[in-house]
Design a binder for these strands. Structure first.
Lengths: 346, 346
DNA sequence: CACCTGTGCTCATACGTATGCGCACCGTTT
DNA sequence: AAACGGTGCGCATACGTATGAGCACAGGTG
């Protein structure tokens, strides 16, 4: 019966002793560096035999210290990864990240360290110790990313990418960005193709960068195609304005583009209350990823989350392989979902 | 405008130079060891100022090498973590693990490295490099855990726990085990309390340890309470035997205990086809976690996955804090779900 | 025989941190 | 005045790995 091995794990020095060579020889044999070619088969075999006998495995900390790599990819989310509430948001990204990390031989570190505040929001810098350093590079993920921390991270020359748009003055944060602008434009184009000429736009209350992209894309398409936008529209107040709604019911718009599913559903109900049906009387499209619901699938865009996760990993690899390169952001196209909530103008 | 800092990250030596002290003084101030008490406020301030000015953050690799801790908790699954998610086997465990890790200030490493086979199954040992070493200790998770790898891991003295029962001859693997045995017994007790005296048992085809526990618990309760078990029952063949089913319909059993939901549903259908209703004519209980379905909630047990995840983390911490202690396994009680598929004997 | 080219290694060092040991200085006690 | 205890640090080293430099030897060439 085997007995549990006690004491320290064997080091290359132990292996070297047993194989009758020097520690450096062991290192060369194991890590297979260029000079390995100069070590004959016989010696190599002795080393490997000793490795097997002692059950030697490399000490990752020491290795990481010596090289500047430890094949670890950090993932920092500013909220918990697993919990249900945010599950939908993060989940698909992680899927892609994990897949790609696995394919490229990297392990993943989930940074779960909370800030001292205990408010549940996560911080990168905690008591002077930036834990992200543990990983060769990191993917940052989350809507509430702290701009100050991003700036510092960038300033310190840490290698990372941010999923989603996040502009920080004075820093060039490499971002992987769903191309909401183009997608929003294409949705307008599609509606125009169905004969719509008078449009409405409903804003959400959030004022994050991604919504700015959508508004830009919408406004550009309206202008480019010579369509009309019923005010208050994309420049107005968030939410569904009562006066505006009456105008729409009166025919001021035949197509409405809405920033979120929640708002779209509210809109549909309030239209129904006034005897207007979607899409028969009015077409409605949504500018975010939307699951199918009982009343059908929203005409919407799809956020290619998994794809974005994979891209983020590749991007990170590229940055690690060539540290000198400029950190550029990347737009990822969003496919359109045809849906059942838009129709040709009647 | 700030310019991106180039070159190496500052070390304690750099801080020391700037603060006009030695590197060791910096280390003492920063890590706040016992001797810190002997360093006056004035010096400390100088050090912290220098830290701030240089933006020094500790190098985790070096720190991990020096101490024997790096506050990393490994999670190794033998299949991918993120796929399937919602109904996924792993998900709830991870929820608990993440929560508890966060609470205790540990980060999580997800080991995603596959074996060379590319068959999707994951290996711990990959080309002589046991990646788990990266973490202070690990939680192993998965039904198909390779026994040989577990044995080796244990032999090498690595600190880990296994979620789920997994016996390895010659090694004492610390396991966190849902107490199927007790729970199965209690289900029998509950049925007996409803007046049932003649029982049947349906096995699944799987021959993993957890099923053995269920069978033991069932058999013990049957014996203890002086009940009768209609053969082939728990010792017989897996699946629903035709002959046995006829006997049950004929009254050989008023209560049937089934290992899996899948089988229970099949049983219900085949009973219905013979004019027997659940639970009016026959009570059926399931020995695994069962979601509510259209025909009601199965009388079943609940696997406290999240709780188990949390316990696993705590267990690991205990082992890390006291390396000498014997690695003991732990049974976690499974609550019973009353359900709607059992009733008093008619 | 002097010289050169490989070959098969070893030596020495660096990476950044933590820590046991001890030195120099100062104020106090005997 | 000698002895002593406390304060405020610095010195030196260890952790395990990777790697540039170089040494000793063998064999071949002029």
């Amino acid at each position: 019966m085997t007995v549990q091995r006690r004491g320290k794990a064997p080091s290359q020095a132990d292996v070297a002793r047993l194989a009758g060579v020097s520690q450096s020889a062991v290192s060369r044999v194991i890590s297979g560096d260029a000079a390995t070619a100069r070590i004959p088969e016989e010696t190599r075999r002795r080393v490997f035999d000793a490795v097997r006998e002692l059950g030697y495995v490399a000490n990752p900390a020491a290795r990481a210290m010596r090289k500047q790599r430890n094949n670890l990819l950090g993932v920092h989310t500013f909220e918990r990864v697993f919990p249900h509430a945010r599950e939908d948001f993060y989940f698909e990204f992680l899927l892609g990240i994990e897949e790609r990390a696995e394919e490229t031989g990297f392990d993943l570190v989930l940074f779960t360290s909370t800030g001292a505040g205990g408010d549940g929001e996560r911080k990168i810098y905690r008591g002077g110790t930036n834990r992200l350093n543990l990983a060769d590079g990191s993917i940052l993920l989350g809507v509430s990313t702290d701009r100050g921390e991003l700036a510092r991270l960038w300033y310190e020359g840490y290698t990372f990418v941010h999923i989603g748009r996040r502009e920080v003055p004075g820093a060039e944060i490499p971002q992987i960005i769903p191309d909401y602008r183009t997608a929003s434009g294409r949705i307008v184009e599609r509606l125009a193709g169905l004969g719509h000429r008078r449009f409405g736009y409903v804003r959400d209350w959030l004022e994050l960068e991604p919504y700015a992209d959508r508004r830009t894309g919408y406004a550009e398409a309206i202008a480019r195609l010579g369509l009309s936008d019923a005010s208050p529209g994309y420049l107005g107040a968030p939410g569904i304005d009562e006066v505006w709604l009456e105008e729409v019911v009166g025919g001021a718009a035949t197509a409405v583009v809405v920033e979120s599913v929640r708002l779209a559903e509210a809109l549909r109900e309030r239209l129904a209350a006034r005897g207007r049906k979607v899409p028969d009387d009015i077409s409605v499209a949504v500018l975010e990823g939307a699951p199918a619901d009982l009343a059908g699938q929203w005409a919407s865009l799809e956020i290619p989350r998994k794809e974005i996760g994979r891209i983020a990993v590749d991007r990170l690899h590229a940055m690690l392989d060539d540290p000198g390169q400029r950190a550029e952001s990347l737009l990822v196209p969003c496919p359109l979902i045809a849906g059942t909530t838009i129709a040709a103008v009647s």
